[in-house]
Amino acid sequence: MNNRNYHILFANELDINAAKAFSLNFPRIPLLNCDVANISEEYLVEKNIDYTNVDLVIGGPPCQSFSTVGKRQYDARAKMYKEYRRILSFIKPKVFLFENVTGLLTIKNNIGQPVLDDIKNEFSDFSDFNIDLSYEIKESVLNAKHFGVPQNRERVFLVGIRKDLNVSSKWKFPSPIYQREEQFLTLEDAIGDLPTLLNGESKQNYEIETYTRYQQLMRGDCDDLTNHYNGINGEKMLRIMEVVIPGEGKKYINELVVNGELDSKYYLTSGYNNTYGKLWWDKPSSTITNNLSTPSSFRCIHPIQNRALTSREGARIQSFPDSFHFVGSKESVNMQIGNAVPPLLAIAIAKQLESFFKSITR
């Protein structure tokens, strides 16, 4: 892909549906649908990709092992950052950007040491590859709601700047656009114009006009509504979603049972304490996950409709425009949505990177 500011050499994605979706939305960018472990200098040469003199590499190794939602373990996925590091060892970009969940800040390795320290140390020095390559590492936690995304979503960002360039002092992470509670976009701001859905219902057309600037931005010129369908839930789940109140979840339901306000058949024995949670209409959404349409999962129950979020609502909350096409089953689509860096946050970082590169080439 080319514009007056940049040229993207290639992207890499292992999941077939995510790869198809990427190519569908960005057809001019070469997409390597393969395991990152298979990407080597020889492989790039075979694909006629010139990887010399690269300015920037962006990557986000799998985050599930670090996530504070569910189990946390230092497993094979947690070590995938080493493959990213291997890619850096032969591309040798001027700058790299690394993104992951905030759980990375606290998880320990197999000998009880902070994994983040390992990562920063390894990404600083590449002498074990017998090459002269080292990076100055800058670290920050950014929250998507500070950048116009209607979601309370914190992520860790590491920026590595090649030490031989002597320009690391010029790097600054983007400053928040919105900082006060009353400035943050709410769930209603994001999805209030999307059609209501009954149990098992799907709709392909908008029914009302947009009434916030964010809704206008997301809908754009779209005429057809996609990925807006509600799953079929049984009587027990419907009743649970009906009685739980915004901001509450499993614990609240069980308290109703214990207090005799709800039949004992609704007592919840499975799931974490933060499951079966209902969102707030007048606040930013909680962090969107791969299970955004599963009401028994982390907080994803619609605040005024008796259902979980739809894939399109999840995409809206992540700041994907309605024109963005996803590929695959609902589960696959939700994974593509839940794993993504919100586009509006990505744009804020991209603008900062653009300014940085302009400052070091003057």
Rank of each mutant, 00 (worst) to 15 (best):
R85W: 05
R85E: 08
R85Q: 12
R86V: 10
R86S: 10
R86N: 13
R86P: 07
R86Q: 10
I87G: 01
S89P: 01
F90H: 06
I91P: 05
I91N: 00
K92S: 05
K94C: 05
V95Y: 04
V95F: 03
V95H: 02
F96Q: 02
L97C: 09
E99L: 04
T102C: 09
G103I: 05
L105Q: 07
L105R: 06
I107C: 04
N110D: 14
P114N: 09
P114A: 10
V115K: 01
V115F: 08
L116I: 12
L116K: 06
L116A: 05
D118I: 12
D118F: 06
I119K: 02
K120D: 00
F123V: 01
S124V: 03
S124A: 01
S124D: 01
D125K: 00
S127A: 05
D128H: 02
F129S: 02
F129T: 03
F129M: 05
F129D: 09
N130K: 13
N130E: 13
N130G: 08
I131D: 03
I131H: 01
D132I: 11
D132M: 10
L133E: 01
L133N: 02
S134T: 03
S134N: 09
S134I: 02
Y135I: 03
Y135M: 02
E136V: 11
I137W: 03
K138H: 15
K138S: 13
K138V: 06
S140T: 13
S140R: 12
V141W: 05
L142C: 07
N143S: 15
N143Y: 12
K145E: 10
H146R: 04
F147R: 00
F147I: 07
V149E: 09
V149Q: 09
N152M: 11
N152D: 15
R153I: 14
R153C: 14
R153G: 15
R153W: 13
V156N: 08
F157D: 05
V159R: 08
I161M: 00
I161V: 15
R162I: 06
K163L: 00
K163T: 10
D164M: 11
D164T: 10
L165M: 15
N166C: 13
N166H: 13
V167F: 07
S168V: 05
S168N: 12
K170H: 14
K170S: 14
K170F: 13
W171G: 01
